[in-house]
Design a binder for these strands. Structure first.
Lengths: 199, 199
DNA sequence: CGGAGTGCTGAA
DNA sequence: TTCAGCACTCCG
C-alpha cells in the first residue's frame, strides 16, 4: 500500500509554532482512518525532547530532570495523596564509614569530587557528601539541587533550614560555561572513540 | 477511596493451578492503572525467580542471564531472522589506549581484574580484556562466557577458533565455591548497610 | 511503566 | 452512520 506522507509543516490556521501531523492507521478494523496530532514544538520523534540519561555509574536509569517553562502541571501533581514518608534529618550520616570494596574485599580509595560541590552541615565531609549525593540520585525522583539555605543558617539551625530531601551539599548553579565545558568533554571523548573505531 | 485487595489465589474461571495477580502501577503517568498477570506456577513476587541485576558500574540495566532447565524457548528464539551483523575479529583491540577520565580530564589508573579472568590472543593484556568484557556486558544480550577454544589453538589460529561474539578472555567456570564466596560478600555488605541504617 | 497504535462508543 | 475522544493492548 502506498501512502502519501502529509507535509508536517506549520499550518496557516494554527497558532504560531504549532504543527499538525496526520497519521494513517496501517492495520486493524480501522485501517485507513487518519489520526491527527498537534504539537507546540518539535515532533513526536524529536530526539531533543527526550531527557538524556544521567552519566552516573548507576545500575538504575536516571533521566535528567526536565524543568518546563510553561505552567503545565504534571500529572503527578494533580493526583492527591501520593506523599512519601518524610526523610530523617542527616540520614546520610548513617552511611558514614561505609565504603565500596573490590573483588578482594579491599576498600576503594577516596573519590575526588568536582570543585563546585561543597558539603554543608556539622561534620559533613566530602565522603558523606558523596554518599548523600549518590543516594539522592538513586532514590529521589526530584531534581537533585542541594540545600537552598545559607551555610551560616544551616550550621546554626539545621532542624529548621535543612531540607532532608536534598543531599548535604550547597545548591549548585550550573551556568553556560559549565555546560560548554561539559559539552567539550563529551566532544573529546567522542572524538577519541571515533578515532579508535575507524581503523 | 478504599480498595479491596484481590486475593491472589486460584480463580474458578482459570485452569487448575493457574493464578491471577493484579498489580497497580505505583507511579508515573499511568499510576493507578492495573496490570494483570497470570502464572502457572510460583508467583511474581517470588524473589528467586527474578534474575539479579549485574553489579557493574553501568548506566544500562544488565540482568544476569538465566539458563532455564525446562525446555521453554526464550522469546528471542521465537523471533526469526533477527541476526545481528557479524563482529570483526579482535574488535576490542580498537579500544586499546582509551581510558576513562575524571571530571578534570585526568585519566583513571588501571583496574585490577579478578584472578579468574585470563586474557587470550596475541598481545591481549588486562586492559584490553577489561574493555572487551565491559563492552560485551553492555552490547550483547547473550551470556558472557569467554572463549571456548584452548589457549594454544587460539594463539595458533585465531581466525578459525576465536569467537568474536565473546570477549578476549578464557572461558570462566563458576563453581559452587565461587557462588558461596560471592554470597558471603553480599552478606557482609548487607550487614554493614543494615548496621548503618538501624541507628 | 511509557508510548505507539488500534478498538470502542455515545452523541449527533 | 460517522467520528472525536478516549480506553485499552501490546511490547520494549
Amino acid at each position: 500500500m502506498n501512502v502519501t506522507i502529509e507535509r508536517k509543516s506549520d499550518c496557516a490556521a494554527l497558532p504560531k509554532g504549532w504543527q499538525r501531523e496526520e497519521i494513517m492507521r496501517k492495520s486493524g478494523l480501522s485501517a485507513g482512518k487518519v489520526d491527527v496530532f498537534y504539537y507546540s514544538r518539535g515532533m513526536r520523534t524529536d530526539v531533543s525532547l527526550v531527557p538524556p540519561i544521567r552519566q552516573t555509574a548507576s545500575i538504575f536509569k536516571q533521566p535528567v530532570t526536565v524543568y518546563k517553562t510553561q505552567d503545565s502541571k504534571s500529572k503527578a501533581d494533580l493526583k492527591h495523596g501520593t506523599l512519601d514518608k518524610p526523610n530523617q534529618l542527616f540520614w546520610a550520616k548513617r552511611l558514614e564509614g561505609l565504603r565500596a570494596c573490590d573483588v578482594d574485599g579491599v576498600e576503594l580509595g577516596p573519590v575526588e569530587l568536582p570543585k563546585g560541590l561543597k558539603p554543608v552541615g556539622p561534620n559533613v565531609d566530602d565522603g558523606t557528601l558523596l554518599q548523600s549525593v549518590a543516594t539522592s540520585l538513586h532514590v529521589t525522583s526530584q531534581a537533585v539541587t542541594g540545600q537552598q539555605a545559607s551555610k551560616a543558617v544551616l550550621q546554626m539551625n539545621p532542624g529548621v533550614f535543612l531540607n532532608p530531601d536534598q543531599p548535604l551539599m550547597h545548591s549548585v548553579n550550573i551556568n553556560e560555561d559549565d555546560i560548554r565545558r561539559q559539552e567539550d568533554r563529551v566532544q573529546v571523548a567522542r572524538r577519541k572513540l571515533q578515532e579508535a573505531l575507524k581503523c
